[in-house]
């Protein structure tokens, strides 16, 4: 049955319409979880608020479990699901830059837009910085090109790379996620409560 667009159940032209609808839902959930506040997001790094970790772990785990059940029930063909190609060195360098920006600015790209959308000035400044960053990267692409394409490993997943069963991996991941939820609750109790 699925995925709907690659199998032409929904025509490809609807791609952007669906993207807008999903984007709205995504923004709604993010704002509902309080991700429009940079202090809430950054709380993850200072240890007084772990909402980011919980939301994203829950989303990842739910999606993974759901997709594999759907795959078993024959509702989706996992081999047609798009896998983002892995550029290992590019991902490491990009992840470091993003992490520093994350802690320093208190937003990640998506949440900065949400912040900007509800009228937060820091969100707008962050978005502006994002645009400037994109501009410099695009203009200087020839300099960054080697890095950008560095460590290409193809369309590979962790389970394929280590040759373990996806289902087992998801189960272990779920256990780790639940453990993380528990321990972050403990940490949060010890750290001084921050009002924001």
């Amino acid at each position: 049955m699925g995925p709907l667009i690659p199998l032409d159940i929904i025509p490809e032209q609807w791609n952007n319409v669906i993207a807008v609808i999903i984007g709205m839902a995504f923004g709604f959930i993010m704002e509902g979880s309080g991700f429009s506040s940079s202090r809430k997001i950054v709380g993850l790094f200072y240890g007084y608020d772990f909402t980011v970790l919980r939301v994203f772990f829950t989303a990842t785990v739910t999606t993974a479990i759901g997709l594999y059940y759907f795959s078993y029930l024959g509702w989706i063909d996992m081999s047609l699901v798009y896998i983002h190609p892995t550029y290992l060195t590019a991902a490491i360098v990009g992840g470091l830059i993003m992490g520093v920006g994350f802690v320093a600015g208190g937003y990640c790209p998506g949440t900065s837009l949400i912040g900007a959308a509800i009228g937060r000035i820091d969100g707008m400044v962050f978005t502006l910085g994002l645009m400037i960053g994109i501009f410099f990267f695009s203009e200087g692409f020839s300099i960054f090109e080697g890095l950008y394409n560095g460590g290409f490993m193809g369309y590979i997943t962790i389970t394929e790379y280590f040759n373990i069963s996806s289902q087992l991996f998801i189960f272990l991941f779920t256990v780790v996620a639940v453990a993380a939820f528990y321990f972050t609750t403990l940490i949060r109790r010890r750290v001084k409560q921050v009002n924001y």
């Binding site: 993010m30 991700f35 798009y82 990640c108 790209p109 998506g110 949440t111 369309y155």
Partner: peptide, 12 residues
């Protein structure tokens, strides 16, 4: 080939 979409902007 595995169907390639144009670059998807990922992340949060």
């Amino acid at each position: 080939k595995r169907k390639k979409k144009s670059v998807t902007a990922g992340g949060c």
